[in-house]
Computed example of a mutant assay.
Amino acid sequence: MRLRIFTEPQQGASYDDLLAVAQATETLGFDAFFRSDHYLAMGDHVSGLPGPTDAWTTLAGLARETESIRLGTLVSSVTYRPPGVLAIQVAQVDQMSGGRVELGLGTGWFEQEHLAYGIPFPAKRFGMLEEQLEVITGLWGTPVGETYSFSGGHYTLVDSPALPKPSQARVPVIVGGGGAKRTPAMAARFATEFNLPFPDFADIPAKFAGVRAACEAVGRDPQELVYSTALIAVAGADEAAFTRRAAAVGRERAELREHGIAGTTGEVVDRLGALAADGVECVYLQIMDLADLDHLDFIAREVVPQLD
């Protein structure tokens, strides 16, 4: 099982804060550093200071200040950037990183941040997501010297040179969500990874089965996809350490144990083992206290060695 560090900078983090977490992620041997793509803090008692950072600007900087970890978004919203612009941004950051970028793309859901920064928030966005996935992968897949055109309900591209190209032959594309039909169908068509964000544990096997069925329906081998989930992580060597970290992120211990990767070392190892048994191949550990780098060190030192 691969473990990735997943951050929520809109809750309050500077670029330097994120750099420190990304460099610790790399030094400690985690697989990747991912961040959300939001512009407004969530929660009544969260200031969000010093203010939002842009996801792809952040990843461009980290591309030059890290060497080995994968870098990506979980997930970018289709409402923020036209697909042609996003394709250029991701390809450039992939070049800057030497081919370490992954793109998570979703419909977006947080209307208030759109209102706060003047970003249009259409009521129907699944069609936008489907077209963006088709356009972005189409631009990257167009041979050099040829052009790419697309005409859809939301986007039109005419004779695009489809440049620049990413360094990777295929940038991993992550599609996720809990929908029963449209999301699995899009993952089957366009994704290299399907992600379940913050699911109820009991729902995971059925959700993955739905994606596998969607793959089979379009003649794709379901094993080509990576199956992942994102869950909050709060762990400690003993109950006192766990209690302290739970309080630092404003969450109740019982609730964390019910819904997250949480508790003492044995509990965390057991939870990850149960997820693996349900078919989870990769876990995005949502880390909410970015100042607590000892938390990452603890997970790397005490938890990771016990995983198969």
Results as ranks from 00 to 15, higher is better:
19 L>R: 15
8 E>I: 11
87 A>W: 02
274 A>G: 10
173 V>L: 12
69 I>P: 01
5 I>K: 04
12 G>K: 14
79 T>G: 14
144 V>R: 15
69 I>E: 08
65 E>V: 00
178 G>K: 11
230 A>E: 13
161 P>H: 01
142 T>H: 05
201 F>L: 15
214 A>S: 14
100 R>Y: 05
181 K>E: 13
197 P>H: 02
36 S>K: 13
238 D>L: 12
180 A>T: 14
222 P>A: 10
300 A>D: 01
17 D>W: 05
74 L>T: 03
129 L>E: 06
29 G>L: 01
267 E>Y: 01
95 Q>I: 09
74 L>R: 01
16 D>A: 15
251 R>E: 12
97 S>E: 06
304 V>Q: 13
185 A>S: 14
158 V>F: 08
167 S>C: 06
48 G>R: 08
301 R>P: 02
236 G>P: 05
2 R>S: 12
108 G>S: 07
20 A>F: 03
248 A>S: 15
216 E>D: 08
304 V>D: 08
127 G>Q: 04
273 G>H: 09
91 A>V: 01
176 G>N: 06
272 L>H: 02
15 Y>M: 13
24 A>D: 01
137 T>N: 12
14 S>G: 10
37 D>I: 08
29 G>I: 01
141 G>P: 01
128 M>N: 11
20 A>S: 12
223 Q>P: 03
205 P>F: 03
95 Q>M: 03
20 A>R: 15
212 R>S: 03
9 P>G: 14
57 T>E: 11
23 Q>R: 15
270 D>C: 00
147 T>K: 14
265 T>G: 04
211 V>M: 12
111 E>H: 08
83 P>R: 07
108 G>V: 04
109 W>P: 02
223 Q>K: 13
167 S>Q: 13
114 H>A: 12
204 I>D: 05
296 L>Y: 06
180 A>P: 00
148 Y>L: 04
222 P>M: 06
31 D>T: 12
209 A>K: 12
151 S>V: 09
52 P>S: 13
274 A>S: 08
96 M>Q: 09
21 V>Q: 05
128 M>D: 07
284 Y>S: 07
154 H>W: 09
167 S>A: 15
177 G>F: 02
143 P>T: 06
75 V>R: 08
245 R>I: 00
197 P>V: 03
7 T>C: 13
307 L>V: 11
134 E>F: 00
18 L>Q: 14
66 T>Q: 07
288 M>K: 14
39 Y>N: 07
